[in-house]
Design a protein around this nucleic acid. Structure first.
Lengths: 187, 187
DNA sequence: GGATATTTATTGAATGTTCAACAGAACGCG
DNA sequence: CGCGTTCTGTTGAACATTCAATAAATATCC
């Protein structure tokens, strides 16, 4: 008897299992720790921080809302709410766009920049302590390659998916290969 | 002049930078994709799924609230709210504990078990498609070791930290090395 | 040019999460 | 025992995120 419906699932092997559970653990916990540090010393969310970094790297420290949403993997709605909060906190401002009157620029303020410059060193230290410095050089190398692959795959699938506006990211991503740490380098 | 305050931060190297950004990307996107799949076919959250798995692996399919919170890296408050939702959905029930009259058991229902059994094969497939199958054997091996290290470190730091009740986890974790996939194997 | 579709960004309500306060039970110790 | 402390779990309010609906500007197409 041939059955078409109940193909045996390809369960994970024990090693894959272990690997996957460890990944899940890191996935869940790492952000918690990073945010705790960031919050305690600098009163910033990880989301806040990411926005600040992206803006700080952009020409004229400004990015259009939709692109920023894509860069930071958020929905436009969420970004909009978040910008409202950050605007209230004086970290950013909105400016309307000349060339497209629907558009808004998200612009980093001086205060926002200062805040980032102060926070960056501690944040890098935190990232090192909880993650980067725990890895051997080989692990860093392999991991970098592996996650690059996964990222590409997710982005490729992303067109179909829930994540809004992932198109047009690769272009600007290339320009901003400099990084969360590098942000404050030239302060 | 000696200055004690402004030690030069240890910025990430370019390779570390790339590695870290890729990690962040995966960290952000992977859960989104997994949840999308799980939600579409089975109407379950990743959080729901994790709870179901943990319970399914436990003796008598029941775990005390606090321990379950620790196992699934949530606060007790969050778990409490979540249990309320899952209880309304008929996936779990609460039962009060005989030996400790403060305590509550989180218990998997038949319906919850069935739901998990149906969802598990698709979820494994999803995990493979978006993650595991994208990696070479070497990458899996290195990654497993690397994240195991990071996890240990985070747990060690956890005593101090925001994450509640991480103590006593290692004990029960050893027993449940069987996994999210294995859960439904003996259905 | 003008109707239609698409893109940009925001809004408010529904949902989920965090945070601080709480109540009850167990523990520890003089 | 009696007192304070710790532990378990829940609650409601504050906060964040998602989702669907909207308005306004631009693109597209005939």
């Amino acid at each position: 008897m041939v059955d078409m419906t109940t193909e045996e699932p390809r369960w994970l092997s024990d090693e894959e299992q272990q690997m996957w559970r460890a990944s899940l653990g890191v996935l869940n916990l790492l952000p918690v720790f990073l945010e705790r540090d960031l919050q305690q010393k600098h009163g910033l969310t990880l989301h806040d921080y990411e926005i600040l970094v992206r803006l700080s790297e952009a020409p004229e420290r400004r990015i259009r809302m939709t692109e920023l949403a894509g860069l930071s993997h958020q929905s436009k709605s969420r970004l909009s709410h978040q910008m409202t909060r950050m605007e209230n906190a004086g970290l950013v401002v909105r400016e309307s766009c000349d060339s497209d009157r629907r558009g808004q620029w998200a612009v980093l303020t001086e205060a926002g920049w200062d805040r980032l410059v102060k926070a960056a060193p501690d944040h890098v230290e935190s990232v090192r302590r909880h993650y980067v410095d725990l890895l051997t050089d080989e692990q860093k190398r392999v991991l970098g390659a592996a996650f690059e692959t996964v990222m590409l795959h997710l982005h490729a699938d992303g067109g179909t998916a829930a994540c809004p506006s992932l198109s047009g990211i690769s272009a600007s991503a290339k320009k901003t290969t400099g990084a969360s740490a590098a942000a404050a380098k030239d302060a």
